[in-house]
């Protein structure tokens, strides 16, 4: 671990310590930019406090152990796991628990090879790139294929476990995926469960949170809902949630993209009209209501 700080004795001023590392601003940024996710934010604050104390203890010479920082994020798609992983990386970096603070995000494809002898170099290559930072493995359960004993995923798992144990000060691994499948994955790979200190569960968003997310996204793109459109979108969320393959914030983003498309074609349809900035910025109820979600008896293949 690279704690570039002088050892200290005597009393500690916690506030000064906190300000010195500057994680408070990351935490407030997290609060501001991520809507909902109360339990996740609480957990991250707890972890940050623990690490702050750990850092002080280390400098006082009260501990020399490197804390286990590997984490698992479980939750449905689109609940912000990747975004939070990026924030965690910068918190760990500020506190000096990882040296560089980069996040290497991978899935099974990047770790597991195609033929015998291909997996180990591939996994090691990724591990080397992630050294000094955070390795984020999305949909980690695909590494383990219970139906195929000779699957190369097992080899990647063994290398990962070994590095997670022996090079704790060089690398933090975050595993992410859907709750129930991760549970099964940990069940068949007990080595992982015991090496992971923090299990964080990402809840689904409530309807009003999804609306707030939609407005935040639109605000970033300089669009806004008209009053009627906003009302229509509230109904859209309720209907869309009931449909299959709903993936929280990601579905919202896709829906907004399609609404922008419809707004654009509505505006272009009438070429003689003179547009104000207001017209170009606002999404009307018709843009929302044209969605196939509102059409009754739509086939489940259409999620527009």
């Amino acid at each position: 671990m690279d704690l570039d700080v002088v050892p200290m004795t005597g009393n500690v001023n916690l506030r000064e310590e906190l300000e010195a590392v500057g994680i408070e601003e990351i935490l407030t940024q997290l609060d501001r930019e991520l809507i909902g996710l109360k339990p996740v934010k609480t957990r991250i604050r707890e972890i940050a406090s623990l690490l702050l104390i750990e850092r002080i203890r280390k400098r006082m010479g009260l501990t020399s152990e490197v804390p286990t920082l590997h984490m698992s994020f479980t939750g449905n798609p689109g609940t912000g796991k990747t975004t939070v992983a990026l924030r965690i990386a910068s918190i760990l970096h500020r506190l000096g628990f990882v040296r560089r603070g980069q996040v290497v995000s991978v899935t099974r494809d990047e770790l597991v090879g195609q033929y015998i002898g291909h997996t180990a170099p591939k996994t090691k290559e990724i591990l080397k790139k992630a050294m000094g930072g955070v390795l984020f493995i999305d949909e980690a359960y695909y590494l383990h294929r219970p139906d195929n004993e000779r699957d190369y995923g097992q080899e990647a798992i063994e290398i990962l476990l070994q590095v997670m144990e022996s090079q704790r000060e060089d690398l933090v691994v975050i595993l992410a995926g859907y709750g129930d499948r991760m549970e099964k994955f940990f069940g068949s790979n007990p080595g992982f469960r015991s090496r992971i200190a923090h299990h964080i569960d990402f809840p689904d968003y409530a309807d009003d949170e999804l609306l707030a997310i939609a407005e935040l996204m639109l605000g970033d793109m300089n669009y806004r809902f008209s009053a009627a459109a906003r009302e229509a979108f509230v109904r859209y969320i309720t209907l869309r949630k009931a449909q299959p393959l709903f993936s929280n914030a990601r579905s919202i983003r896709n829906a907004l993209d399609r609404m922008r498309l419809r707004q654009a074609s509505r505006l272009v349809a009438d070429l003689d009209r003179v547009l104000s900035a207001e017209d170009i910025m606002s999404l009307e109820a018709s843009d929302v209501l044209a969605s196939r979600v509102f059409a009754n008896g739509s086939s489940p293949a259409n999620y527009g």
């Binding site: 040296r99 090691k124 080397k128 790139k129 050294m131 000094g132 590095v163 090079q167 060089d170």
Partner: peptide, 10 residues
């Protein structure tokens, strides 16, 4: 690579 730890491992 970002960090020397990877090279040292090799």
């Amino acid at each position: 690579l970002r960090d020397a730890a990877g090279v040292m491992m090799e």
